[in-house]
Simulated assay, not measured.
Amino acid sequence: MTMTSTPGTAANPSGNEGLGVAAALFHGLSDPSRLAILQHLTLGEHRVRDLTEHLGLAQSTVSTHLACLRDCGLVVSRPEGRASIFSLTSAPQLLGVLDAAEQLLAVSGYAVALCPNYGIGTEGSPAADQLRAHAGRDAGE
């Protein structure tokens, strides 16, 4: 399955084959704390303790998100003494996805932040107002 194959073709006869798996991947990436952890792991291997100190998150939060990322196949761990050392499983591919997401956000003017279902701001919030003003300038308003 490729995400870019045309629905209803020989390459993708059902039109949605495997999209559930792709949606699960994006759901695994959908939490800001998980993204921060992944971003930090692009710098190299880290212990839970290192991540809690660098990211300012609680140990239980980091551990929970690392378990999710491990279950999604995005990170692996290896024991080192009493600690576990975490690293990315497919760093080049993951970096490609994150880079593509940053490019998509930039060309869309970060409009997804205003999405009523998944956006970061609510009506009247400073973040939403700022994004609307930015989008208006980009559209020539």
Rank of each mutant, 00 (worst) to 15 (best):
1 M>E: 11
2 T>D: 06
3 M>C: 07
3 M>N: 11
3 M>E: 12
3 M>H: 10
3 M>T: 09
5 S>C: 07
5 S>L: 03
6 T>F: 12
7 P>C: 02
8 G>H: 09
8 G>W: 13
9 T>W: 15
11 A>N: 02
11 A>S: 14
11 A>K: 09
11 A>D: 14
11 A>H: 12
14 S>Y: 15
18 G>E: 04
18 G>K: 06
19 L>D: 14
21 V>E: 07
23 A>F: 15
28 G>D: 01
29 L>G: 14
29 L>Q: 07
30 S>D: 00
30 S>L: 00
33 S>P: 00
33 S>A: 08
34 R>Y: 06
34 R>M: 01
34 R>P: 02
35 L>N: 03
36 A>N: 06
36 A>R: 06
36 A>H: 07
37 I>K: 01
39 Q>N: 05
43 L>K: 15
44 G>L: 14
45 E>Q: 15
47 R>F: 03
49 R>P: 09
50 D>N: 11
50 D>C: 12
51 L>W: 01
51 L>D: 07
52 T>N: 11
53 E>A: 15
53 E>M: 10
53 E>G: 15
54 H>R: 15
54 H>F: 08
54 H>K: 13
55 L>F: 12
56 G>N: 08
58 A>G: 15
63 S>I: 02
63 S>H: 11
64 T>V: 05
64 T>G: 06
64 T>Q: 14
65 H>V: 02
65 H>C: 03
66 L>N: 05
67 A>M: 12
67 A>S: 14
68 C>L: 14
68 C>P: 00
71 D>S: 08
73 G>I: 12
74 L>C: 08
75 V>T: 15
75 V>F: 04
76 V>W: 07
76 V>H: 11
78 R>K: 13
78 R>T: 03
80 E>W: 07
80 E>Q: 08
80 E>C: 10
81 G>V: 04
81 G>I: 00
81 G>M: 03
82 R>A: 10
82 R>D: 10
83 A>C: 06
83 A>N: 06
84 S>M: 09
85 I>T: 13
85 I>G: 01
87 S>W: 00
87 S>N: 07
88 L>A: 01
89 T>Q: 03
89 T>L: 13
90 S>F: 03
93 Q>M: 02
93 Q>Y: 00
93 Q>P: 00
95 L>C: 09
98 L>S: 04
99 D>H: 08
101 A>W: 03
102 E>A: 13
102 E>P: 00
103 Q>P: 11
103 Q>T: 06
103 Q>Y: 05
104 L>I: 15
104 L>N: 02
105 L>E: 14
106 A>W: 04
106 A>G: 10
106 A>P: 02
106 A>V: 04
107 V>R: 12
108 S>W: 14
109 G>H: 08
110 Y>W: 09
111 A>N: 09
112 V>M: 03
115 C>L: 06
116 P>C: 04
116 P>I: 05
116 P>Q: 08
117 N>H: 00
118 Y>Q: 01
118 Y>H: 08
119 G>D: 03
119 G>M: 05
121 G>L: 01
123 E>W: 10
123 E>D: 06
124 G>D: 06
126 P>C: 01
127 A>P: 09
129 D>Q: 01
129 D>L: 09
132 R>H: 13
132 R>Y: 09
133 A>R: 11
136 G>K: 14
136 G>M: 08
136 G>C: 01
137 R>F: 02
137 R>W: 02
138 D>L: 11
138 D>V: 08
139 A>S: 04
140 G>T: 03
140 G>P: 01
